[in-house]
Design a protein around this nucleic acid. Structure first.
Lengths: 344, 344
DNA sequence: AAGATCGTTTATAACGTTGTATGTTTAGCG
DNA sequence: CGCTAAACATACAACGTTATAAACGATCTT
């Protein structure tokens, strides 16, 4: 039988509340009794029942993380960072996959399903967008990740999409490229607040600042951002016969697909085309050639998000602060695909 | 305030037990009362408190998954598959990372830490080995994954390491390669039950069956199995000037590193060297050239593991079955790196 | 028409923990 | 020494759910 506090109390010859006090590090416990309780715990191999604790205290010590799917590199690395960040706060992470299913995303934000066992939720949408902002109701601690929904009623951690994209293009300009293609624009050309739109805006801003006209032929729509689609967009562009000497792929996965297509077509990177991606996934360090990228500050995003969530969890109802928008610091990582060394 | 069963009962004009009966789909509830209860639930937006349920029933509806780290592709894909499999049983998954830390692996198997809120544990060790078998004590539902510990007292789901590795080498032999190098052997050459040892055994068996002598110079030890190390091993082998026309990398990550080194050295794949890896991670489909590999049956592993765990969870103490060892079916996936088409 | 039987519902007691209020000792001070 | 205040320990009531056993009707037997 699994021992309970009562068993520990009996063995130590104290009341259960004293056991509880020892476990929760309360003051006013005599060192000698503390010792007695600890050794009883040891002897019985007692572990607190977290369901009971959760029921009584209203806290489970677990937060939820909802992402599209872990097989996408970016989300695996994000989950990794978030689990590490949560650990520092002694929180477990229950991972839920929405699999690019709109209904599941809705279920997740409305608090249905498995995630009821959690104290709060980190949510990275893939289908919900700006128009679904009203679905986000801060009825429980909630932090939004990513760049699909802005101005919602909840905390939000994201990246400097526009300025980091601008910096990426400036990096290409800096090595003398002038005809810079972009792959990954959103198929519908409305100017919205989606990563694709924001990064496109950064691209245009950089060109404008350099007094280079934006050539619409160099901008290719791609969705979703899968490797195959990146390769295909690149083949199309090559087939179209439009000259270009630089490529900004709106994420690394697209860039890696593009590298493949360029290789197949016999183009040399970076000699013929310099390529930069976005996200700085681990794989970028190891492709042939290694891929320059924008590191959007994933660890910082993870830590900030967890910290905000913890704050919301600890917040009393009558002292609710207004929702916060936090953007992490980015960094351009120059590698072989833009003519820099193999390092880092 | 969050509504409870009492609120639902009051609104529906029934007792809380009736509400419970409706929620748990118990028989003997009159359709009319069921309806009344359901609409009260709807109206109040009631959701059961899972901590309370967990306390009362002894089940949390969550299982734990402990892996080294999600940033390693293989584990991200494994976690993905496991979360999907768990979903079918209506179970959530709490993911814990052991980060290649032996003490953390021990903490996990001895049931310390965050994972107390779970009904059972799936564990994929990276540091614990055959000698730590005694640490696995089936005091709670537990299923072991991977190939580091055999013959322990718990259920175990793994792959056909030897025969699938043999099949991989036979694939290379089948396209006429005779000098087949292997990278990823374990640095200490004891014959143990680790993936490296088992796959090496398969390699030797294949050569033996083809009456080709094993050349120790062609077997390179690599640890850990990271891309950089795969590339380095390949550079060493090339520098050593030993001729070879085939390469079996003990996992895909090594293989991808090797592809890079081969490319740098100007070797053509598959013309000069045919390459096959192991694991069939998603990325293998998209490398240049695409990578042939062994699909060890990850989805099957995930589903089997979850099913075994569920059985153990439901098992009564007095009807414990002996531990089971299950191996999933494998499949050779032929791609460009061994001269096959681009497809799948 | 009285008892037995079935389907349906309910009061009440757990589950193992923490918070509150209250009791008991020990130390501090005049 | 006696009194007060602090330090320490305890009993008991929650938290929200499910399980047990018993009560209630209605229908069926005899």
């Amino acid at each position: 039988m699994i021992p309970t506090m009562h068993d520990v109390a009996r063995v130590a010859g104290v009341s259960i509340k004293t056991v509880s006090n020892v476990i929760n590090d309360f003051p006013h416990v005599r060192p000698s009794t503390r010792m007695r309780v600890l050794s009883a715990i040891e002897q019985l191999g007692y572990r607190p029942n977290l369901s009971a604790r959760g029921l009584r205290s209203g806290r489970t010590g677990v937060i939820g993380l909802a992402v599209p799917e872990l097989r996408q590199n970016y989300f695996a690395e994000l989950a990794d960072s978030i689990i590490r960040a949560a650990e520092k706060h002694d929180l477990g992470v229950l991972v839920e996959q929405t699999s690019g299913d709109r209904d599941r995303e809705i279920a997740v934000v409305t608090g249905a399903g498995r995630l009821r066992l959690t104290d709060g939720l980190l949510f990275s949408p893939e289908r919900l967008g700006q128009d679904d902002r009203h679905l986000l109701r801060p009825t429980f601690p909630f932090v939004l990740l990513g760049e699909r929904i802005f101005g919602g009623p909840t905390d939000h951690v994201t990246m400097h999409n526009v300025s980091s994209a601008k910096a990426a293009v400036e990096h290409l300009l800096g090595i003398g490229r002038r005809r810079i293609a972009l792959i990954g624009a959103h198929p519908d050309q409305r100017e919205e607040v989606r990563p694709a739109d924001l990064r496109l805006r950064g691209y245009k801003a950089a060109l404008e600042a350099a007094a280079i006209p934006v050539d619409p032929q160099l901008i290719r729509a791609v969705a979703p951002w899968h490797r195959e689609n990146g390769a295909e967009a690149m083949r199309d562009l090559i087939a179209a016969g439009i000259p270009f000497d630089g490529l900004f792929a709106l994420n690394d996965t697209l860039a890696l697909g593009a590298l493949r297509a360029l290789g197949e077509a016999g183009w040399r990177v970076p000699d013929d085309v310099a390529v930069i991606g976005f996200d700085d996934i681990d794989e970028a360090r190891f492709s042939v050639p290694s891929l320059s990228s924008v590191d959007p500050g994933r660890d910082e995003i993870a830590e900030t998000a967890v910290e905000l969530l913890v704050e919301r969890i600890n917040e009393r109802d009558d002292e609710r602060l207004p929702p916060l928008l936090v953007k992490s610091e980015f960094r351009i990582v120059a590698r072989e695909s833009t003519g820099f060394g193999r390092s880092s």
